[in-house]
Nucleic acid binder design. Structure first.
Lengths: 136, 136
DNA sequence: TATTGACTTAAAGTATAGTTTAACTTATAT
DNA sequence: ATATAAGTTAAACTATACTTTAAGTCAATA
């Protein structure tokens, strides 16, 4: 029915200390404790942690995630704010993808450059290919 | 013909202190100095800095970038290593994009969830829609 | 019941990537 | 010539996100 912090950490692929840190930072107010103070992670807590992982992996800082969690605890009055946060994050992720695709093009070019240089035996033999933004 | 550190920083959209930090970390061994010790950035240095910016933006740590720069200084014997570094970085970027696209799907779902909840006036009214991985 | 492994907290430590400060020098404009 | 804006360094400071340590408690097993 419940997972300990170690079990939850294993399932999520993070260190137990990371979950304790998140708790300390106010990211896990929903996790209940046993009478003796041990954390008890429910299935729904794991769902929250997956969302936290998603927001974290897409670059939202701990404080931003905490705000979202706080909103959820505050109830229906914050649906608008939660929506705004998620829509902003969606735009951010789209921009991150665009940026990475742009950088990927440059890396692809460099890979081509070095492959050709390798076949020619030197980078100086590449002089004739050189255009903008290319060097060794 | 040459840019000062402030001019170079402005063109690249970074702080002058960032360029000095990169220099200290061995990322800019190609930047020459005036007789009095001022950095003089050439056009080709700016090209290097754009590549450094690309590698940094795609998650390569400073030490990794330094290794690449060192290779380039060592000459044609390191073409193979430079190619390996760039091919690994290309794979890394592709994985980052895939991960972001995966996360984007979850965020898209959450945006839909809150939009619907907003129109219904509450998240509890969403019960009937709930499937895996969804909570407030 | 005693041991062992996992849990608890607070506080200190680590890693990465810069930024800021202090004291000083150089370059440009009046 | 001189003020000022921007350059120089080393060293200290900041931010973020954890991780590790220390001292102690809890839970399961032989």
């Amino acid at each position: 029915m419940f997972y300990t912090v170690g079990e939850a950490a294993k399932i999520l692929g993070v260190a137990p200390s990371t979950l304790r840190y998140y708790d300390k930072e106010g990211l896990l107010p929903f996790v209940e404790r046993s009478e003796s103070g041990l954390r008890m992670f429910k299935e729904s807590d794991m769902d929250w942690l997956k969302l936290i992982g998603c927001l974290k992996a897409t670059g939202m800082p701990i404080k931003g995630i905490r705000r979202f969690i706080e909103c959820a605890r505050e109830g229906d009055g914050t649906i608008g704010e939660r929506l705004k946060i998620l829509e902003a994050q969606r735009e951010s992720v789209k921009n991150q993808i665009s940026e990475l695709e742009r950088h990927l093009k440059m890396i692809d070019y460099k890979v081509w450059y070095y492959k050709t240089a390798q076949s020619l035996g030197s980078t100086s033999a590449m002089e004739s290919y050189k255009t903008q933004g290319s060097q060794d």
